[in-house]
Structure formats: C-alpha cells, structure tokens
Design a protein around this nucleic acid. Structure first.
Lengths: 301, 301
DNA sequence: GTCAACATTTTGTCCAAGACAAATAGTCCA
DNA sequence: TGGACTATTTGTCTTGGACAAAATGTTGAC
C-alpha cells in the first residue's frame, strides 16, 4: 500500500493529477489510512502505470479510465504492433533478448562487437537509431522493464562516450554546441549526434541535457559556436519547443546556424529563418557538408 | 519572472512549501500575473536558492527568512570556509579558471593529464571528489554559469566512462547494482563509484539515475546483485530518502547488502539493519573489502 | 477534397485555508 | 552530563473551486 507521494514517484503522475482523476473519473479509488490520507493498493498503481505508458504514446486519459487492466495492456501491445508493420526486427530482437536475459557483460560485448564490425557511423545509423525505437516500443508494450531500458541506455552511453573520447579532433572544424532545453531529459540523441560528428573529427561542445535558454545563448557566444544543435524527443511539449526555438534564434549571432533534431521536429510546422531541421540522424553529416560549403562560399579560403 | 512550477524545479522547494512559507513567514512575496498566479522575480529566487543551500547544510528556515540576501551569502560563505578549512584550493582554482575560459579542448586535456599522472583511484579520490564540491560552491556563489557546470559534468563523464570501458573485469567479483531513486538527477557520484570499482576490476550493473523503487528490487533479483548501491545528493529530500531506503531494504534479498552514499547520507539518522552508510568516496573500497571478508566468512572457499 | 478558422470538450495545474504528524529545540530533573 | 518531557517549528496532506492550455470537432471557403 502506497501513499500519494510514493505513487507520484512511482508513476510520474503529479499529486494534483491523481486527486483530480479520482474526483473526475472515479479512478483511482484509494483507501484511507488512520489519518484520512490516501492509500493506493498495488493493482491500482499497476493500472496507473499502464495508463501513463499509453498516455506517453499519445492516448488521452478520459478514454482509458474505465477500461480494465487487461484491456489496457492489450491496447498497449496492439499499438506498437500496428506501427512496427514492415520493419525487420531480426537484429533488434537479438539485442532485446539479451537485455531481457540480464547478462550485462554479454550485452556490452555484443555492442562493442557490432561497433567494431560496422564502424562508428554505420553502428550509429544502422544499428542504434532503429534499436532505440525498438527498445522504446518494447518498453511501451511492457516487454522491457524500466531497469532494462536504463541498462541499455547506460551501456550505449559507455560505448559511445568511449568511442568519442578516443577520436582525434581537427581544429579547423566548425564549433558545434550540443544540448537540449530544460524538461528534455533524453541524452542519447545528443550523444549519437556527437558520435557522428566525432567520426568526422568534428569536436563538440557538449552541455548535456536541460540547459536554460538564456544559458544556451550565453554559451554559444562564449564558445563562439558556429552551430547550435538542439534535440527534442517525442515526449517534449510541442508548443514549448516552437516557442523555445523562436525565442532562442534572435539571441544567437546571425552567423550561427541553429540545428533542431529528434523525433519531435517532424511535427513542427514552420521554422524561423536560420533554423535547420534535422529529420533523422542520417541528415547530420549531409547538414555538416551543407554548412561547410555555405561557409566556404561566404568566406572562401 | 518565474511561475511556481519553474521555481520548484529551480530551487527544489515544493509548491506546497513555497506557498506555506509565503503564508507563514511573508517570504517569498511573489507578484501576480494577469490570472492571479504567483510570479517570482530573480532576486527572490536567488534568495530562495541560498536558503535552500543553507538548509541543506542543516539550518532551519525560520531563522533565515528575515535575513537579507547579503547576510545569507555571508553565512553560506562562512560555512563553506569553515568546512573547507585545510584543503588547498590551488589545483581547483586552476580547473575552475579553465572552465571560465571556455577552452573546451584544454579542459579535456587537463583532465586527461591529471588522470594519467595520478592514476584512476587517486584521480577520483583526490581530484574529482573535492573538485565537485568546489564547482558546486562556485556555482552557488555565482562564479560559474550553469552551462559551465554542464560542460564540466560532460567532460568528466567522458573521461570516466572511457576509463571504465577500457578496464578489464574479473568474473569472480561481487555483482554491484548502481543507481539512484527517482528525483535524483546527479549521475556523477554514481560514475565515480563505478570508476573506483572498475579500478579494482569489479564490474557494475549501472542503471543510471532515477530508477523506481520497485524496479530496483526487481533488477537486483534479476541480476542476482550482491550489493545495491544508491547515491543521494544533498538536494534530495531527506525524508524521501529515509522512506525510500526503509521501503527498499525488505524488498531485497537478505543476503544483498545495501550501500547508501552521497553527501546527503551524513544527515540520515538511523539506518535499517543491513544498510551500509558510505560517508565518502574514500569509504567505497574499504566497504568492498569488508564485504569480501564478510562474504568469505559466511561462505568460505 | 483540403486547409484554415472557430467553437467545444478535455485535462492539468493553480489557489486558498485548514489540519496534523514528524522533527527539532527547549526545559526540567536526576 | 544525560534522559524524559513539553513546546515549537515545519512540511505535507486535505477539500473544492477556478481557469488556461491542449486536443478534438465543426464549419466554411477555395
């Protein structure tokens, strides 16, 4: 039996939201302890967790509340199957099976092996990019536990960061500043971009995630960045992304290019002038080439 | 001007607490926007941050509220001076100056140089551990911008992860599971512990930050962990830490040791049986030794 | 048929004031 | 000096009302 604070931590739903759902939909319906405070039992928390997962996948709570736990899990499974229609999951199921086997050394070995066989660029583009999607979906289906996804993220970070660290850097490259806005916690996208650039010997000024807008502009000026690259995952609020981009652009020097990437950007309507949309990881290196030729044209030599 | 949500994120003080302080002490005294919602200006948020910092150091809010920002910073400075009594800040000021110079390659070079000269263990224990404190204090003083601190964190992560990745692992070691509770975002502590263990050829099952309680227990069982290690920075709510530890302990197998570390743990009163307090990074390797001998005694051979 | 503008529903967060347990400080006494 | 008791401090929970932002549905023009 959990109290409302613990449920908030466990499910990611705020206390206010939990109380409002109870008031509005009649679910959850927690018991009370001796002091009149809410106590949630395990089945209700499980159901809340599935609901949260489905909401992260785009569903709205109103439609989900009256369904049973079984209906909800079925719905979750159904959703990802429908989307993963024609994609060949062969190589991915191997790795996901490895994740489920909890053999941490084998996982690391497998990733390193793939990296060595494919080379850095192919590893990122052909293996990691689709694998990330597959892992996300497996998690949404309930096939992967959170801790299994965490282990995956950590292992990939280890492999990528180690690869980045060992690359030599050219000094005549563009200065690329890499980060995300506050509220965006996903670091893997940034790291994959950094890896691709490192493979072209372009060093990055990586700030990790969640840099305040004002600081991004200040940092870009301090480091005399040629390119500022932001990453937006699907979970990021669309409006906030558009607003953030629009307010950041004029704070950057006109000569600084602003790249925006991540799964969210496909849904952004119109971008301000001087903002470059990176639809997928495959666009990163072409965008780098484009920047180089544009830069040469304006300042030859 | 920030709204209450942003202040909550920025300071780590809950909305409830912010409203209660206003009601009870008359500070903060936010303005209101067109919709009657609280708007905090920058000076008040700065003051809240110092107050939070002093509270993390053991002060109680009632005594701090009516002091001015200057009095509070003086108090904070006094405290840190008192704490940093005999430590020579020479090497740290070098690195902090490097951070302020925005010379990213030089920073990385300097860190790598220190690592090679000191070796992994000394680098972590003698350089990084006090440097983290110094960086945190410089940030609190306003000497370092957020983006400079971010850059520091990223660079250190790169160096440590790359070092970890290149260490070989012994298979007859304890299985150590490494993570933090939800709400705890600081990953560097975990990474330093992982580095120390890697230097002893002990491989870790690193889950990164923010693993739900239930998942930690599940993961520990799935990986047959001998040791579960949690890290708590001093920004973490004390009560939540105590509650989390108390509720996790019985969910772990009795034979699994639970380590709790980080700057918060000094303030935890009494720990449940079977929970080991890691006061500082220097305690990690001794604790490992202690585990080994205890393990040998109970299961010799 | 497609797109844009508008209206409507849904949904999350904020607000206020009251209550009370847990933690801390203060006091008394041996 | 230390232990037991009381008083104060402090954070979190409670209820119910309000309303903006997001999502959905509808209309009309091209």
């Amino acid at each position: 039996m959990l109290n409302i604070s613990q449920v908030e931590r466990d499910t990611g739903l705020s206390k206010d939201t939990l109380r409002m759902w109870e008031r509005r939909y009649g679910f959850p319906q927690p018991g009370r302890d001796a002091f009149g405070e809410r106590l949630y039992d395990a089945p209700q928390v499980d159901k809340l967790r599935v609901i949260k997962r489905l909401m992260d996948a785009g569903q709205r709570p109103g439609r989900l509340m009256d369904k049973s736990f079984e209906e909800l899990t079925a719905l979750a499974a159904q959703q990802t199957v429908a989307r993963a229609d024609g994609t060949p999951p062969a190589a991915h199921t191997d790795l996901i099976a490895l994740l489920q086997s909890h053999d941490s050394p084998a996982l690391e070995q497998h990733l390193t092996h793939l990296l060595l066989r494919q080379g850095l660029q192919q590893f990122v583009l052909a293996t990691l990019a689709p694998l990330n999607v597959a892992v996300g979906e497996a998690w949404a289906r309930g096939d992967l536990a959170i801790f299994e996804e965490h282990l995956y993220t950590e292992r990939v970070q280890g492999v990528l960061r180690s690869a980045i660290q060992s690359m030599s850097r050219r000094q005549d490259s563009p200065r690329v500043l890499l980060t995300t806005l506050p509220q965006e916690q996903h670091a893997l996208g940034l790291l994959m971009v950094e890896t691709l650039l490192a493979s072209e010997r372009v060093p990055c000024i990586a700030l990790g995630t969640q840099t305040p807008l004002q600081d991004i502009a200040t940092a870009a000026a301090a480091h005399r960045a040629d390119i500022v690259a932001l990453s937006f995952s699907d979970a990021f609020p669309l409006r906030a992304a558009a607003a953030g981009i629009a307010s950041l652009r004029p704070d950057l020097a006109p000569s600084t290019t602003l790249w925006v990437g991540g799964s969210l950007v496909a849904r952004l309507k119109q971008l301000p002038r001087g903002v470059c949309r990176i639809q997928s990881l495959a666009d990163v290196l072409p965008a780098l080439e484009a920047w180089r030729s544009a830069s040469n044209r304006s300042a030859p030599g």
